[in-house]
Computed example of a mutant assay.
Amino acid sequence: MQASTKDSVPFSPASVRLPFPLSPGPTRNKWQFSDGSSEVELRLQLGDQDVQSPRDILVDANEASLAIRVKRIESHITMLETNHLFDKIKPSETIWYIDDGELVVNLKKQDPDLKWPDIAESWESLTAGSMQLLKGTSIYVVGDSTEINQKVARELAIGLGYTPLSTIELLETISKKTIDSWLLAEGYDAVAEAESAVLESLSSHVRAVVATLGGKQGAAGRADKWRHLYAGFTVWLSQTEALDEVSAKEEAHRHIKDGRRAYTTADVVVKLQGWDADHAKSVAQASLSALKQLIRSDKELPGKKSLYIRLGCRGDWPNIKPPGWDPSAEVDVPVTTE
């Protein structure tokens, strides 16, 4: 996954095709991990590996991956391998040695301020590590499917310990009628307007994950209704027919470049190759991974979101205007939506 920039808004595309973080290797009780501020340390018990010399150990460290193998006469035994370290390291400064039957590997972090919950990026490490990055900022899940938005938002809320909220549930509770009957009686504009009012009431909330209505029935599908969505980090769940991660990323960047869809103002996009409710946690994991990259690219973003809320969610994101700015004095530029 790579982060890129759209105007002054960082934008991170992600794919839900996620590998297992560690494969294969010893069980967790055979290795220990610790974070020492500027570096992380990994200790692996060599046990019955019968290492005769340090030259029997192969430690292959790259910026975001790590592989540890033991030489054998005609093969290598993999002790640990991951293509997704929790964050980037400085591979040239990797140090390893053998200490009392253990292999000790020290990895120098590129970002010493980021606390690593574990050696690899996984659901568990992301949910633990995202707390220090999000700083309580809420998350809004948008996209064409209300069902997908709800399922993934719930997984995110459970993992982060946030409050799960759903605009369809709130709207149906308030109106005492279903969204479908509301659409039939009053049309899409009325429902989108009502959801916009709900989003306004939720914009001051912290530590919440909000699932929004999907498609043209919702406020998020309209470029002129994003004023209060900017109060949190927005994750766009976008279904794709791309056959690989590279193509999915290229598709995401094309959508951002043409700017024709309201969703393209989202902070991050996660491309879904099909949908299965049983995989909602995998989509949530990809969402957190993309958000981690986004915030690492600009650590001031959570504070900037907080300032945006305190100034009244005036619609001036990401170029926040000084106090007293009057949004009604600005000339509206029409934006085409699909």
Score class of each variant (00 low, 15 high):
residue 139 I to H: 08
residue 266 A to W: 02
residue 214 G to L: 05
residue 275 W to H: 11
residue 248 A to P: 14
residue 282 S to V: 11
residue 276 D to V: 09
residue 82 T to M: 06
residue 35 D to M: 11
residue 80 L to W: 09
residue 93 E to V: 01
residue 318 P to D: 04
residue 155 E to A: 10
residue 123 W to S: 05
residue 6 K to R: 15
residue 299 K to S: 06
residue 30 K to V: 06
residue 22 L to P: 00
residue 190 A to V: 11
residue 112 P to R: 01
residue 289 S to Y: 01
residue 102 E to Y: 06
residue 265 T to M: 03
residue 324 G to P: 10
residue 95 I to H: 00
residue 151 K to I: 00
residue 108 K to P: 03
residue 148 I to L: 10
residue 277 A to R: 12
residue 26 P to M: 02
residue 140 Y to Q: 03
residue 137 T to L: 07
residue 60 D to Y: 07
residue 38 S to Q: 04
residue 89 I to S: 03
residue 219 A to T: 04
residue 229 L to F: 02
residue 38 S to E: 03
residue 323 P to Q: 02
residue 62 N to W: 13
residue 227 R to L: 01
residue 104 V to A: 02
residue 156 L to F: 11
residue 262 A to M: 07
residue 186 E to V: 09
residue 64 A to Q: 13
residue 203 S to Q: 04
residue 92 S to F: 09
residue 288 L to Q: 13
residue 131 M to A: 13
residue 192 A to Y: 04
residue 285 Q to N: 04
residue 30 K to R: 14
residue 98 I to S: 05
residue 110 Q to F: 10
residue 325 W to I: 00
residue 269 V to G: 05
residue 175 S to I: 08
residue 73 I to L: 15
residue 51 V to N: 08
residue 205 H to T: 12
residue 148 I to N: 12
residue 181 S to G: 06
residue 209 V to F: 08
residue 320 I to T: 00
residue 302 P to W: 05
residue 26 P to T: 08
residue 192 A to C: 10
residue 336 T to Y: 00
residue 11 F to H: 08
residue 137 T to H: 03
residue 38 S to H: 01
residue 191 V to N: 00
residue 86 F to R: 13
residue 185 A to K: 15
residue 107 L to I: 01
residue 178 T to C: 05
residue 317 W to A: 00
residue 97 Y to W: 12
residue 186 E to L: 11
residue 61 A to M: 08
residue 9 V to K: 03
residue 303 G to W: 00
residue 238 S to H: 15
residue 292 K to H: 14
residue 270 V to R: 00
residue 146 T to W: 09
